[in-house]
């Protein structure tokens, strides 16, 4: 067995009770994910069935948030729309964290030419604004769910890789890593079992904060008409669809979808900040 311990193993639960705000935020996050999963089953109406007779209705007992210009129930579309919005943002975060962390660990571990080539490649990606990459990629791949996911993954990988690389470099210089090497552990084992868990909280904080940005940007691409296409429901797309009604003074569609985005982003941002405050900044 291991005769020495890396800090992650001996990290006992921090003294003091858990922050109640963090628990509350975590609960809200779970609820949002739950809605994304079971939302379609909760929806009182079909989200894509147009009904011209009941178009543009205000909030009522039958339609809590009213209906849109095609007579579709807004609440239903909101609940169903959560699925694409949350799935999009989650996939972007998962993929960009996976690639970002892998690149960061490889660069920090090997250093040298690999590190400098990787970092200059990422710097070039940095030189292209994220939205532009998304626009170009959707031109290449057409509209839909995957183009914005891939585009935004490309956008966020350099950000995550940069932060994690510096954390991993700091970790790599610590004595226990030398001890692992002397004990003859493979690079894979040291990186995955020791370094990665020790910078786990930084990775978690980074991923949480990226989630908010990913949700906003995913919505932005749908808003531009380059992502999710009607008649599907997605929050950013719903904001765009509500624009014409808004000019006539009916706010529910745009505002309810916008509010969902804002609330979700705030919850994830505050949670991310709390995590990084509590477990040391990157």
């Amino acid at each position: 067995m291991t005769a020495f311990i890396s800090p992650a193993d001996r990290q006992a639960p921090r003294s003091g009770s858990a922050d109640p705000l963090v628990l509350l935020l975590a609960a809200i996050c779970l609820t949002i994910f739950l809605i994304a999963i079971v939302g379609p089953y909760l929806a009182p109406y079909s989200p894509e069935d147009a009904d011209i007779l009941s178009a543009g209705l205000g909030p009522s007992g039958a339609h809590w948030l009213g209906t849109d210009a095609l007579g579709r129930d807004i609440l239903s579309r909101l609940l169903v729309g959560a699925r694409l919005s949350i799935a999009g943002a989650s996939l972007i975060v998962a993929l960009s964290t996976l690639f970002g962390v892998s690149i960061a660990l490889a660069c920090a571990w090997r250093g040298g030419i690999l590190d400098s080539i990787m970092m200059s490649a990422l710097n070039i990606v940095f030189a292209i604004p994220g939205l532009l990459i998304a626009v170009i990629l959707s031109a290449l791949m057409g509209a839909g769910f995957w183009p914005p996911v891939i585009a935004l993954t490309v956008v966020y990988v350099p950000f995550i890789a940069r932060v994690i690389r510096s954390a991993a470099l700091r970790e790599r210089r610590r004595a226990y890593v030398d001890a692992c090497q002397i004990a003859g552990f493979s690079s894979w084992r040291i990186n995955l079992r020791h370094i990665a868990p020790n910078i786990g909280s930084i990775i978690l904080a980074q991923a949480t904060i990226t989630f908010g940005a990913a949700l906003m940007d995913f919505g932005a691409i749908s808003f531009l008409g380059l992502g999710i296409q009607p008649p599907q429901a997605e929050w950013g797309l719903m904001v765009a669809e509500g624009r014409s009604e808004l000019l006539e003074g009916s706010y529910q569609l745009s505002m309810s979808a916008g509010l969902m985005i804002i609330i979700t982003v705030i919850v994830f941002n505050v949670l991310g900040e709390r995590i990084s405050d509590r477990y040391g900044r990157a």
Partner: peptide, 11 residues
């Protein structure tokens, strides 16, 4: 920070 430009625009 949590207010997307396209929502701000419509508000």
């Amino acid at each position: 920070i949590a207010l997307p430009g396209y929502v701000a625009a419509l508000v």
